[in-house]
């Protein structure tokens, strides 16, 4: 599986109002890139554009979109909301992509993936019977089953409690390794733990901040992780 890289440079507006830009973003192939920035700076808009959504956005510039041939999509998206269908059980939610494309249901692979996210015992439950952390793990299982080379994460862990969030970060880092990941977050601690490459997005554009040597997921209490987190926060505070 060779994962493509993502690149986007240009400006975006919605109904004439500027959303971001000019910015220059690159997410190298097979690496985990964190896009960190305050709310309202246009991070999610970048993600939507790369996902082939965002008809409401007027984008001027260049983008190596993650979509291949027309109708073929190379990306999977995991959002802040788990987007589980309440009328489907965990297994059926995991296989949603196949259901929606009219393909044969990959039951064996679904079982395997649910095993890997630690939900094998909950496979027949409905989403309302799960905790927030478990629901987000189902969303991760669904993302894994799609098996796309590019994975876009839009603050997927931000609604979780601290412990669930740390566990989810470890799990996602392990299971999504080798894919091109672009992870939008406003959490400096998260970027410090997960980013192989960390991009800081402010009104002035996108700046590259070099993370510690240690491979992600970095220990949340390691001095270099905490120091890097402090550095990211300082740069955020100093930006306009």
């Amino acid at each position: 599986m060779t994962a493509p890289s993502l690149r986007l440079s240009g400006t975006a507006r919605i109904d004439g109002a500027p959303i971001f830009g000019p910015v220059d973003l690159e997410a190298p192939a097979g690496r985990w890139t964190c896009l960190l920035g305050p709310s309202g700076v246009g991070k999610s808009t970048i993600l939507r554009l790369l996902a082939g959504l965002g008809e409401e956005v007027t984008f001027e510039g260049e983008m190596t979109a993650a979509s291949g041939a027309p109708g073929e999509n190379l990306v999977a998206l995991m959002a802040q909301s788990d987007l589980l269908m309440p009328w489907l059980d965990v297994t059926a939610n995991t296989m949603l992509g196949a259901r929606l494309r009219g393909e044969a249901q990959p039951r064996d692979r679904a079982r395997e993936v649910l095993e890997r996210v630690g939900l094998a015992a909950h496979a027949a439950k409905r989403p309302h019977a799960l905790s927030g952390g478990q629901r987000q793990r189902v969303a991760l299982a669904r993302t894994l089953l799609e098996d796309r080379r590019v994975v876009l994460l839009d603050e997927p862990f931000s609604a979780l409690d601290a412990r669930s969030r740390a566990l989810m970060q470890d799990l996602a880092a392990e299971l999504l390794a080798g894919r091109t990941v672009l992870h939008v977050t406003h959490d400096t601690a998260e970027a410090a733990r997960l980013g192989e490459r960390v991009l800081l997005m402010t009104r002035d554009g996108i700046a590259l901040v070099t993370p510690p040597e240690a491979p992600p997921p970095r220990r949340y209490d390691a001095p270099e992780t905490l120091a890097f987190q402090g550095r990211l926060l300082r740069q955020l505070m100093e930006a306009r």
Binding site: A51, G52, L77, S81, L83, L100
Partner: peptide
């Protein structure tokens, strides 16, 4: 959100 997820999954 559901509709966008479905579109990304190439649903008709």
């Amino acid at each position: 959100g559901w509709l966008e997820l479905a579109r990304i999954m190439n649903a008709t």
